[in-house]
């Protein structure tokens, strides 16, 4: 799809959501409404709608790069995989605890990135886990969920 047309489509969706939400803002009886809560968002949404129009108009006059999203692209697969692993780590962190979760997270990523030295994988994962444990949890008292330490 044409890059600018895709952007225009996104902008139209964003401004539609904005207009829809601002319409739901309650009317307040107090005096704080000289310029109400919806004023600035509506102004911005209007601007985005106009910009989308300009982008679409321009896309027919000047040719812009096309964007191709294909599942065969190994880069896209790698990105998706990393994002999923990050999300899983965040999701399971409270369940399996910081220590094991972190070591597995780092280990799996290093394996995906083709680090072939298992000694390094385990060593670095555990060392990094301990380093962050001391900085964040021990010194700065960040309450990451612990199961063992």
């Amino acid at each position: 799809m044409n890059k600018d047309r895709l952007l225009a489509l996104i902008l139209l969706i964003v401004s539609a959501v904005t207009f829809y939400e601002t319409a739901k803002f309650p009317e307040l009886s107090n005096d704080l409404q000289v310029v109400d809560a919806g004023f600035v968002p509506k102004l911005l949404a209007l601007f985005l709608t106009i910009s989308a129009g300009i982008l679409i108009y321009r896309s027919y006059r000047i040719s812009t790069e096309k964007i191709v999203i294909s599942l065969k692209d190994s880069g896209i697969i790698r990105i998706g995989l990393v994002l999923i692993i990050m999300a899983l780590y965040g999701y399971f962190l409270p369940l399996i605890g910081y220590e094991l979760g972190t070591v597995i997270f780092l280990g799996v990523l290093m394996i995906i990135f083709r680090l072939n030295n298992w000694f390094k994988i385990v060593g670095i994962s555990v060392a990094a886990m301990l380093a962050i444990y001391y900085i964040f949890i021990v010194s700065l008292k960040v309450p990451l969920p612990l199961k063992f330490l």
Binding site: P94, L106, P143, L144
Partner: peptide, 27 residues
């Protein structure tokens, strides 16, 4: 890079959580 990137990603996650101790911020 195959060591550095996992470490940076870990820092991104832990750092985001530490801001207000909220898992939502990781998302």
């Amino acid at each position: 890079n195959n060591i550095l990137i996992p470490l940076i990603l870990l820092l991104c996650i832990v750092g985001s959580y530490a801001v207000s101790n909220n898992y939502f911020d990781i998302g």
